[in-house]
């Protein structure tokens, strides 16, 4: 969803995207898939008021109710697409070029309590955290292996689960969501991109989400 990636400027490093500029408005997931990148959340690791091209920061709705809504843009990519920058230009230091970056990226909250999500599942797994995360250079195939996970049986946690592996496509992941909880949690981290590589302070996370009928190994 970074416009420089979509337009090919990062093609030899971070790669391209299976998303193309003409896919704005196209379906990417279920109606519960709303993904926001918002640098204006106070006190967060990815906070900023203005980006490094002087554009005022604002929330960007990347997916809205399952539809591709907008890309992250700096002035360069926005001008190529004939639109305005949405303030996503960031650099690690004054010595590096500002490029399109994420800030605080999270799934929008829903109506459920966490307990309700767990209680609604007859047979499943609660994945609290994961490791070995990787994703291909067109952002289509992704993999998560559970770090902390529990079996769910008849709506109850039924003991720890090890090495649950979710290997899934991007539309497959977002299309499988059928419920989202109210409580949001953001985790801080560093995102790497650019050449020379630039580490960037970000957060990501969101509420608990329920995926239906996905394959776990």
């Amino acid at each position: 969803m970074e416009a420089d990636r979509i337009l090919g400027r990062e093609m030899s490093q971070a790669g391209k995207s299976f998303v193309s500029p003409d896919m704005v408005g196209k379906k990417i997931g279920s109606e519960y898939a709303t993904v926001i990148d918002d640098p204006t959340v106070p006190g967060t690791y990815g906070y900023y008021a203005y980006d490094q091209e002087g554009v005022k920061a604002r929330p960007r709705y990347l997916y809205r109710n399952g539809l591709i809504n907008e890309f992250l843009q700096n002035r360069e990519t926005a001008s190529q697409l004939g639109i305005q920058s949405n303030g996503s230009s960031r650099s690690e230091t004054y010595l590096r070029e500002p490029i399109v970056r994420m800030a605080n990226t999270f799934v929008a909250p829903g109506d459920f309590q966490d307990d309700e999500l767990i209680g609604s599942i007859k047979k499943g797994v609660l994945m609290r955290s994961f490791t070995e995360w990787n994703i291909d250079d067109k952002r289509y195939n992704q993999k998560y292996v559970s770090r902390e996970a529990y079996f769910i049986s008849d709506g109850e946690l039924a003991g720890p689960a090890r090495k649950c592996t979710l290997e899934i496509t991007t539309p497959g992941f977002w299309g499988a969501i059928d419920a989202v909880s109210r409580k949001i949690e953001l985790l801080s981290g560093e995102c790497g991109k650019g050449d020379p590589i630039q580490g960037m302070s970000v957060t990501n996370g969101g509420p608990m989400i329920r995926l239906r009928e996905v394959s776990l190994r």
């Binding site: 790669g15 490791t131 070995e132 995360w133 990787n134 994703i135 291909d136 250079d137 292996v145 090495k163």
Partner: peptide, 8 residues
């Protein structure tokens, strides 16, 4: 290749 990542 890229994203050579470890689970353990």
């Amino acid at each position: 290749t890229w994203y050579t990542r470890y689970q353990n």
